Simulated assay, not measured.
Amino acid sequence: MSPAWSSRLLALALPLFAWSSSVVAGPPTSARDQVWEAEKAFARSMAKRDLAAFGRFIADDALFFSGTTAVHGKAAVVQEWSAFFQGESAPFSWEPDQVEVLQSGTLAVSTGPVRDPNGKVVARFNSVWRLEAPGTWRVIIDKGSPPSPGPQVGESGAD
C-alpha cells in the first residue's frame, strides 16, 4: 500500500475511532443525573449495611435532623446513624423520585419516599447536595418529613 493511501486510511480511521470511543463512553452526565445516581448509591449503602460507604456521601460540615434535634458534622451524623446499620437487614430504605439542581450547578435537592421493611411509605427524605469536586456530590443538609405524594406524572422527577 502506498504511503498516500496509508495516510488517507489513517485520516478516515481516526474520526471513526474518536466517534466509537464517544459512543462507548456516552455523553457527559448531567448534574441532575449525577445527584440522582449519588442518592441511589447513598441508599444502597444502607441496604448493604455499609456504614463507611454511607459516610463517604456526607459533607464534613453536614447538618442532619433527627426529629427536631440537629446533628452537626459528618462524624456526629455517622455516629448517630450507626444505630441504623446494626443487624442484618435495614430498618428502612429510600429512593429518589425528584432531583433538582440550581442553575449554578453546585447545589441540588433530592427527595423521595422512605419505606419500612415491608415497603410501606413512612416518611419522605429531603436532602441538599453540594458539588465538592467535579462529579463528587455530598449531602450537606438532610431532613425527613411526614409522608406526602411525590411528583405527579408529567412533573419533573423519576426517570
Rank of each mutant, 00 (worst) to 15 (best):
R32N: 08
R32D: 08
D33E: 14
D33Y: 00
Q34Y: 06
Q34H: 01
Q34T: 08
Q34F: 02
V35I: 10
V35F: 06
W36F: 13
W36R: 11
A38V: 10
A38Y: 05
A38T: 13
E39F: 02
E39R: 09
K40R: 15
K40M: 09
K40L: 15
F42V: 07
A43N: 12
A43S: 14
A43W: 09
S45W: 08
S45K: 09
S45M: 05
A47P: 00
A52N: 08
A52P: 00
G55Y: 06
G55M: 09
I58G: 04
I58Y: 05
A59H: 15
D60Y: 00
D61Q: 10
D61P: 03
A62F: 04
L63Y: 03
F64P: 03
F64V: 07
F64Q: 00
F65R: 02
G67T: 10
T68D: 13
T68K: 12
V71W: 05
V71C: 11
G73W: 06
K74H: 13
A75V: 09
A76H: 11
V78R: 09
Q79I: 00
Q79N: 08
W81I: 03
S82K: 03
S82H: 04
A83D: 09
F85K: 03
Q86A: 15
Q86N: 11
S89Y: 12
S89L: 10
S89Q: 15
A90K: 12
P91A: 11
F92I: 10
S93L: 08
E95L: 08
P96N: 12
D97V: 12
Q98K: 13
V99H: 06
V101T: 06
V101I: 00
V101Y: 01
L102C: 03
Q103I: 05
Q103W: 07
S104Q: 00
G105N: 13
T106Q: 14
T106H: 13
L107P: 00
L107W: 03
A108K: 04
A108S: 10
V109S: 07
V109H: 11
V109M: 15
T111W: 08
T111F: 05
G112W: 10
G112M: 11
G112Q: 03
V114W: 08
R115Q: 08
D116M: 03
D116W: 07
N118G: 11
N118R: 15
G119T: 04
K120W: 04
R124D: 02
R124P: 02
F125N: 10
N126K: 02
N126I: 03
N126F: 02
S127W: 03
W129Y: 10
W129C: 04
E132K: 13
A133C: 02
A133D: 07
P134H: 06
P134M: 01
G135C: 06
T136E: 14
W137H: 09
W137E: 09
R138G: 08
R138V: 12
R138F: 05
R138C: 04
V139A: 11
V139Q: 02
I140C: 08
